[in-house]
Amino acid sequence: MKNCLVVDDSSVIRKVARRILEDLAFEIVEAEDGAQALDACRKEMPNAILLDWNMPVMDGLEFLAHLRREPGGEKPKVVFCTTENDVGHIAKAMRAGADEYIMKPFDREIVEAKFAEVGLI
């Protein structure tokens, strides 16, 4: 079974994402911010990371920069999932090593399409 780390400071979003991704046969680990996410990755590198941008303690972009420098940190497919929906943010995320990008609000079809796009399903 593939696992996916869901990183978002909103418990509602984490719950929605969990439900969608569990239906796609992912095992879910949750984190509330970038620092927690980094801890989770150091314990076990996930196959996929669904990543919010704006979070307390450590934001998504900073997390991504750290992740890609970790041993094995190049492996997870990182899909941003954020309300930041302008070209500037998207381009910055892709340059920082994201694999795909979801603009909120999202639904099941979008998550499925984006995960398929990066070869996760």
């Binding site: 070209v87 892709m94 999202f106 984006k114």
Partner: peptide
């Protein structure tokens, strides 16, 4: 719409071939 460009369109194609106009 934002929904339409997220169903099947890879993000790199969105950046490369589209221009954002409001939402």
């Amino acid at each position: 719409t934002q929904f339409e460009v997220q169903r099947g369109l890879p993000i790199n194609h969105l950046l490369k071939y589209f221009t954002q106009i409001g939402d």
